[in-house]
Structure formats: structure tokens, C-alpha cells
Simulated assay, not measured.
Amino acid sequence: MKRLFSTLLLLCFMSSPVMAKNILDKLTAAPGFEISLFADDVENARQIAVSSRGIVYAGSRNAGNVYALIDHNSDGVADKKIVIAEGLNMPSGLAIKDGDLYVGEVHRIIRFKNIDKHLKNPEYEVFYSDLPSERHHGWKFLRFAPNGELIIPVGVPCNICEEDPRFGRIFSLNTDTKEITTLAKGVRNTVGFDFHPSTQMLWFSDNGRDMMGDDIPPDELNRITKEEEHFGFPYVHGGVIVDPEFGEGKNIADYTQPALALGAHVAPLGIHFYTGKQFPDSYKQQLFVAEHGSWNRSKKVGYKVAVATIENAKVTKYTPLITGFMQDETTFGRPVAFAQLNDGSLLVSDDYANVIYRVSYKKN
């Protein structure tokens, strides 16, 4: 057990209301939806999770912090921010199970036991440390499976490189035995996945390779149908493109096709199946996708929240829900990940604007 702080850092929200209002003014939501700020001044906000008491926890990447955000009066706006950890190694991913907060650093998973009751005295223990230390695509996204195992991705430490069993995988960790198994191979860089509420199949986003031009290869939404399924990297991209460096002699048919080929470089990160009751029925059990947006394209793409409509395990429609994060090649925000509040509204983190939005639906 390691003591994290000698004193607790409590911070009120002090960022400029003008800046916060400016980002909201840029965004446009689908009819009936409203966007507000749940929290601002959350530096580099990445994956978010909500405890049984309604406390919202947020990881970060470059900031190295983990935050607790508390909405004391349940008005949809956090009124206190607590930095429960700092100086960590890209603590981007986090998940909650049985009251314990699990945080994914590049090289390990740490755990804060019974976190809601220890905000004044946060301590962590190293829960699992047998992960690669390479930082390139090394930041994590975490999710607990229906069987209680912890799902952990390890991205490849490159743009494009030969397959290595330590990387380009989605792993499942038994939290009791610490035995780790491979769920998927050939995954370049996923930092977003979720289990379908009915079928329990694991869906995930994947970011395609760079340096093949503006329009190829596509980024992907995928679903896992069997253990150790191979999704192509580094040999085949988007289910149709043979890699010019590593694809020689490879057969496209040997690799799983994406459930949906997205635009090249749109950078899909967090995904979330909606299970609440606030949104219209057409959104229930549908997949929300955060397109973080391109950094490596002559004209920017992505920069939106979209919804993939899924029928009989197939994507039948892909519709923008929130746009305006980028306008006229100027970036105002970059959506990252989702978490659902008890009232059915949806939180969306933004690591560029340093905020967490609350998306609600106003019934007529």
C-alpha cells in the first residue's frame, strides 16, 4: 500500500466562465438534446466512471491526474473537484467495481479501495504490474466484463510494425487469480470498448495506421465473436487494404472485417451503449461514439459525437449527435469518452477543452 498524499488537494472550479460558455456556443446537438457543462477546469479529461453514490471519476493522459467530481445538490453541475492522484504515468483509463476504483497507467493497474469513503485520505495499491512500459499507444481504457474480469488493451508501440504478442491485443484479466487471456489480436490502438447490454458481445473502436494518405485506411468499429479473433493489424486494414510493408502474402479473408469502417483518421475513442431511460427509445442499446478528430490530415475530420444504430449485430446507420468541436479548421474541443448518470443523462469528456459535458434530452 502506498500513501499518495500527505494532504488532500481540494479545488473549487475556478476556470473562466467565458471560456466555458464559448465552447458550448460552438456545439450543435440533434433536435431535443441539450448540452451543458457538468465540470470545467478538468485538465486533459479522458475516461470517466460514475460510482454508486454518483461521484464522477475522471482520468487524464498528459496531465497525469485522477479527479473526483462531486455534484452535492444533484443539479447536473459538479461543485467540487478533488485531485485524488497526480504524477501518474498517463492514467487515462479507469473503472469501478464493488466500490473500488481501478486506474490504468501505461505499465500497471492501480486500485483505490472503497474510494468514495476515502476521498480525504486517498491511497492506492498496485493491483497488476505485468504490462509493457512503452508509452507510444500505451495509455489505457478499462472496462469490467459481465463475468467480472477486467478488460485491458495494449496498443502497438509504433505507427506500423511487425506483430508482437505483447502488443496490439485486448486482454482479459481475472481479478482473483491475475491470469490474463487474449480476447483479440491485430488491434492497433483501441481506447474504447463496451459490452452490448443484450448480447454481451464486446464492441471496440480501433485507430488505423498513419502515413498512407488522407483517405486510407479507415478507422474501425469492431465486435468480438470468438476468443483470439484477429482484426488484421499490421497486415490488413479496414478489412480490405493490404499493408504495403507487412501485407505481402497475406489473405484478406483470414482476418475479421470491421463492423463499420469509419473515415480515415477520425480517431474513434470512447464508445458506450446507452441503457438509460431519459433518451428516446430509438437510442436505447445503441452505440455512442466519440470521434476525437484527426491530427494528421490535410483537412481535419472527426471531431464529433455520433450514434451507431445496431440491429441484429450489424450497424445499419451512423448518425452525428453533437458537432461543432471543429469549425473552419479551428479546433475548439475533442470528445473522448462517456459515462451515464443515474438520471439517464450522458457525460462526455473533452481533453482539449478540459471539460466534461452533460448531454440531456428535453421531452416536448
Rank of each mutant, 00 (worst) to 15 (best):
D98R: 12
D75Q: 14
G213V: 08
V187C: 06
K117M: 12
R297W: 01
S129T: 12
N174M: 03
L260M: 13
S294T: 07
A259I: 09
G232A: 02
I84L: 09
F231D: 07
E311F: 10
E86I: 10
L9R: 14
F193L: 11
R135C: 08
R188P: 01
S51D: 12
R143Y: 01
G76M: 11
K97Q: 15
A290R: 04
N65E: 15
D41Y: 08
D215S: 15
L202N: 03
S6F: 12
L24P: 00
K317W: 01
T331S: 13
Y124M: 13
S349I: 03
G104M: 08
G93M: 10
I23A: 02
H292M: 11
L287I: 00
S92Q: 14
K21C: 04
D214I: 04
L260A: 09
D40A: 08
T182M: 07
Y352F: 15
D100M: 11
P217V: 02
D25W: 00
E229C: 05
V289H: 08
F33V: 05
A20G: 15
F325E: 08
W139H: 12
V355M: 02
V42S: 04
F5V: 13
A58P: 02
K81P: 00
Y283L: 09
F231K: 04
D215G: 11
L173S: 06
W295R: 10
T316W: 03
D281K: 14
L94R: 08
T275K: 15
K299W: 10
T225N: 13
V50S: 01
N89F: 14
H272S: 00
N251Y: 10
L11N: 15
I356L: 04
G54K: 06
E125D: 14
L37Y: 01
L347V: 10
L202Q: 02
D100K: 09
L221S: 05
Y255A: 05
Y283W: 11
V355E: 03
N44Q: 13
I70Q: 08
F193E: 02
D243H: 08
F325M: 11
V83R: 14
R46N: 06
R61I: 12
Y255L: 03
Q327M: 12
I216Y: 08
F246V: 06
L9I: 14
I110V: 15
K178D: 07
D25K: 11
